[in-house]
């Protein structure tokens, strides 16, 4: 049971990594399209936040503190990129 939960938990990270890689590829392809880069960054941040909510909901340990944690890290990450553009 514990092994199943561990494997299931690891599999949860695949979509997060996939979205991250897709964002990076997008940044290369649209290297000089500022609106697209801003949109991609925001989309990546939102995806990460949603991933956190869904992941913790599935594990039945979602609460306000955890949601806020993912939200502030999302805001930090998006700000770190967008304010350079």
């Amino acid at each position: 049971m514990a092994d199943f939960k561990d494997k299931y938990s690891i599999a949860h990270y695949i979509p997060l990594v996939a979205v991250a890689v897709a964002t990076l590829i997008g940044f290369f392809i649209f290297a000089h399209d500022k609106p697209f880069k801003v949109s991609m960054t925001v989309a990546f941040g939102v995806s990460y936040f949603c991933w956190g909510l869904i992941h913790h909901h599935i594990h039945k340990d979602l609460n306000a503190e955890i949601a806020i944690e993912y939200l502030v890290i999302c805001i930090f990450g998006v700000s770190a990129v967008v304010f350079i553009l």
Partner: peptide, 20 residues
Amino acid sequence: RIGGKTLAHIIFLTMILVIV
């Protein structure tokens, strides 16, 4: 500890750093 998944935070911030 009750909190967010540190691995997820590390993945997200690593990608942000690479993009920057």
